[in-house]
Every structure is written in structure tokens, then in C-alpha cells.
């Protein structure tokens, strides 16, 4: 169990400790899982790209632990931590990256494009900002069905705030007063484009103000701040106070994908406070405050590595999708399929 349960009347200090430890363990699991995907990529075991969340784990985990299983979550490419915290099994992630026929997308889509829509876990399309209005629609539908108390979260990067989809959807959520939380990881680069070529406002949080959306900013290298600000925004949305925008500052500690050496990231940023590794910062915080000790950290690390290795070993023995057994139909209404599109094969 990652969260303290059944403990009578835990004090405030204990709650803080438990929430940090829970989030930290998801951060660690995500980092180790990402490291494994990077290694598999380097050895040619993964088709297509690999996209890591290195440097974004505190933000992503803080969001994930703030959500309930009955909430709605549309993560983006650097949210391995949030996905795990929302309940995604490591096996789903591994299956999707290795293209297993048993994975959530059955080899039809890969890597970060995974989810289970019926569980409120939405699989991203590549078009940035496009998932926000889908979250809006799920939230609207639940309200339509008289289900209350839920929250929907959508994750973006700084680049996605330049899309029309972002603006349309944020405004739509405000008009409908939906319990939406949009989390923007302002990680200084959209692929290679620096923020001064992406936007000209002082803070991306200003964009929320224009739509009547409550805006928050947070230092995403600091887990404590992330838990407070992201958790607070989720609580505000849940309490019925309308959509919330969280803009988190950090530096991407990797390339856009593993194909990208990110030589464009300037040293000044790497050496700044933004360039701190949130995982190291959190680890030091936990040790300094005696929330845990080095021996326990080592156990978590080795346990997680074993779990990941076992998942990879299992998935590598699983069947790949079979093009001859594939149902080449893009619609669910089988009777409406075209019958004259065979193109000779």
C-alpha cells in the first residue's frame, strides 16, 4: 500500500509525510520506468519514439495523487508519474511501448498514446490541446447524468498553450463552469522552440485570467509546492469553483524524445534553479525531514526495478499483433463497412 490507511487520527505532520512519500514513490517508479524505455530504445527494441518525463515527475505525480480513480485524466507525453498514480499498471505502459497485442491499444497505437477511456483515462492524440475539450465533454456528460464531485485534469506543455484548441476548450470549460484542471508544464522548450518564440505574455497563467479561469503558478522542481498548488487547484475544482489553470515552471531534463540530444538547451538554464532534478530535490527533502531513510529508498528502487524487469520479460514473450488476424475496420458498426475497398490485397 502506498498510502497510510486504517491509522487512527493521523496528525497533520503524518498526512504531509504520507502524501510526500506516496507522490515520491510514483516519481521514482516513473523515472525508473522511463530509464528502462530509454534503454530499450537504444537497443532498438522499441518501434517509433520514446518520450520521457525526466524533470516533470514532481508535477505529474502531484496531479496523479490528487485525483481519485473516479476522476478523468488526460495526460500528455511526460506524465508517466501521473499515469501510475492514477492507477495505470506498469504492464500497460510496457505493453504499449513494445506494441503487445495484449496492450491497451493492441499495437494500433503506441508509446504515450494509451489510455482506457471507459475508466476516465483518456488516450492522447498528437494534436496538442485537443484533449481538453474531450475532458470537458466527459465532465459535462457526468453532470448531465447527475454525477457530482468529480474532477477532470488535462496536461499540456508550454507549446500547447499556443494552439486554438487550448483557447477554445479553456473558454468552453469556463462557460460551462466545469470542474476542469489544466496543468501546463512550462518546461522552457516546445521540442526545440524556446519560450520567447512561443508566447509574449509575462506568465502563461495570464492566459487563464482572460477566460475567467483561476490561475496558479508553481515551481515544479519542488514536490512540496506541487502537492500544495496542484492539490489545491484540484480541490478548488472539486468544490465547484470552476476550471483551474496551473502553470508549472521547470526545465525538461531530456530531449523532446530519445532521438533528440537537446543540444539547444542553454547551459544557463541547466545551471539555474529551474534545472534542478525534482527527483533529487524530493529525495533530499525526504531524508532531511526523516520522512524515510536511505535504506528504504534503496529497497523501493530495487523492488521497482525488479517489477519493471519482470513486466518487460513478460511482454517480450507476448504475441505481437498479427496483420492477417487483424480486423481492418475503423468502425464499430460492422454492417456499415465498405466492401469494395480491397485495393487488391
Amino acid at each position: 500500500m502506498l498510502q497510510a490507511v486504517n491509522e487512527p487520527r493521523v496528525g497533520a505532520a503524518e498526512v504531509v509525510r504520507e502524501s510526500h512519500l506516496a507522490a515520491f514513490r510514483f516519481m521514482l517508479r516513473a523515472r525508473l520506468l522511463d530509464d528502462k524505455f530509454a534503454a530499450l530504445y537504444r537497443t532498438g527494441k522499441i518501434h517509433g519514439g520514446v518520450f520521457l518525463g525526466r524533470g516533470q515527475e514532481a508535477l505529474s505525480a502531484a496531479l496523479g495523487v490528487s485525483l481519485k480513480k473516479t476522476d478523468v485524466f488526460a495526460p500528455l507525453i511526460r506524465d508517466a508519474a501521473g499515469r501510475l498514480a492514477f492507477g495505470e499498471p506498469i504492464l500497460d505502459a510496457v505493453r504499449n511501448y513494445l506494441g503487445s497485442a495484449l496492450g491497451p491499444m493492441r499495437g494500433r497505437d503506441g508509446n504515450v498514446h494509451r489510455g482506457r477511456p471507459r475508466d476516465g483515462y483518456l488516450p492522447m492524440i498528437s494534436h496538442l490541446g485537443a484533449m481538453i475539450s474531450v475532458v470537458n465533454g466527459v465532465l459535462f456528460a457526468r453532470r448531465f447524468k447527475n454525477i457530482s464531485g468529480m474532477v477532470g485534469a488535462a496536461c499540456l506543455g508550454d507549446g500547447a498553450t499556443s494552439t486554438g484548441a487550448f483557447h477554445e476548450a479553456l473558454n468552453q470549460a469556463a462557460v460551462e463552469k466545469l470542474p476542469l484542471v489544466v496543468v501546463v508544464a512550462d518546461n522552457q522548450y516546445a521540442y526545440s522552440t524556446p519560450t520567447d518564440r512561443q508566447f509574449a505574455c509575462e506568465s502563461l497563467a495570464d492566459k487563464g485570467v482572460g477566460y475567467g479561469v483561476a490561475s496558479h503558478t508553481v515551481d515544479a522542481t519542488d514536490l512540496t509546492a506541487c502537492l500544495k498548488i496542484v492539490g489545491g487547484a484540484v480541490a478548488q475544482a472539486r468544490a465547484g469553483n470552476g476550471p483551474q489553470l496551473v502553470v508549472a515552471k521547470l526545465l525538461r531534463l531530456c530531449g523532446h524524445g530519445e532521438h533528440d540530444d537537446a543540444n539547444y538547451i542553454i547551459p544557463e538554464l541547466k545551471n539555474s534553479a529551474l534545472g534542478r532534478d525534482c527527483l533529487k530535490v524530493a529525495e533530499e527533502f525526504l531524508l532531511r525531514n526523516k520522512f524515510t531513510d536511505a535504506a528504504q529508498l534503496a529497497v523501493w528502487r530495487s523492488e521497482t526495478i525488479r517489477e519493471i524487469e519482470e513486466a518487460v520479460a513478460q511482454v517480450q514473450r507476448e504475441p505481437a499483433p498479427d496483420p492477417y488476424a487483424e480486423n481492418w475496420s475503423a468502425i464499430s458498426s460492422e454492417h456499415l463497412n465498405e466492401t469494395h475497398l480491397e485495393n487488391g490485397h
Partner: peptide, 13 residues
């Protein structure tokens, strides 16, 4: 854009 995304979300639900 948001109208159609909204419809997709509602349909999922």
C-alpha cells in the same frame, strides 16, 4: 474544435 471534442467526451461517457 471544442464543440466536437466535447461531443467525443460525452460519447465516451
Amino acid at each position: 474544435d471544442a464543440m466536437v471534442g466535447f461531443a467525443v467526451g460525452a460519447a465516451i461517457e
